[in-house]
Design a protein around this nucleic acid. Sequence first.
DNA 1: TCTTAACCCTAGTTAATCTAGGGAAGACAT
DNA 2: ATGTCTTCCCTAGATTAACTAGGGTTAAGA
Lengths: 109, 109
Amino acid sequence: MNKTELLQGTLDLLVLRVLQAAPMHGFGIAQKIHLLSADALRIEEGSLYPALYRMERKGWIEAEWGVSENNRRAKFYRLTRRGRQQLTAETETWQRLTAAVSEVLAKAD
Amino acid sequence: MNKTELLQGTLDLLVLRVLQAAPMHGFGIAQKIHLLSADALRIEEGSLYPALYRMERKGWIEAEWGVSENNRRAKFYRLTRRGRQQLTAETETWQRLTAAVSEVLAKAD
DNA sequence: TCTTAACCCTAGTTAATCTAGGGAAGACAT
DNA sequence: ATGTCTTCCCTAGATTAACTAGGGTTAAGA
């Protein structure tokens, strides 16, 4: 079935949402998503870092090097204003599309 | 934002579900999804036919040529037993993943 | 000193969907 | 009869997200 453990298109949404709560480094973002989803969502680093780079390039997030809770060098990301707008838009799209799929699943007969 | 009007990975699920309700030809499947979703989901023919071909190759659906309601030559698809199993599995995956995403969206703070 | 864990990164692959076409044939109006 | 519209099917090539499968550095702890 799905090799990807993620619905394509949701990674950006998840990352934006987590960063809205608080600035965070990449590794921490992945951990938080994993934790909040009760193990259901697992973000591969090979997916995450390219995604962060993409989003930075689009101006949705900004990075700054710092030191993590574990005293490691880490790159902290935070939402920009455009990132907040993007989050709003993607959240709406997500709601609309999942509602639509649910409708089809429910009413197909 | 999303250029695709679909969450990737949901097309198979939608098609399987519609075919579970009744055998149908490709064009009709697209119409039915469009209708049931109240215009929110639109399946491009360039996405649909390759998807039907993939699913037939995987043994989830079977095709037979016939004549449509409008007296046109049309290829009617129906679910196989394995297609029904696949539908069950994909429905579960869908529920699990959307629930997980919702959790993250809700509890990130 | 060695291992493990925390952190970051990238090249290349895979695969789903879209774009942008093409074509045949029935229906219907003129 | 001609032309146009609609229904139905199909495909090549592009795009792009996410994955696989690596690689590397450095702090902590045994």
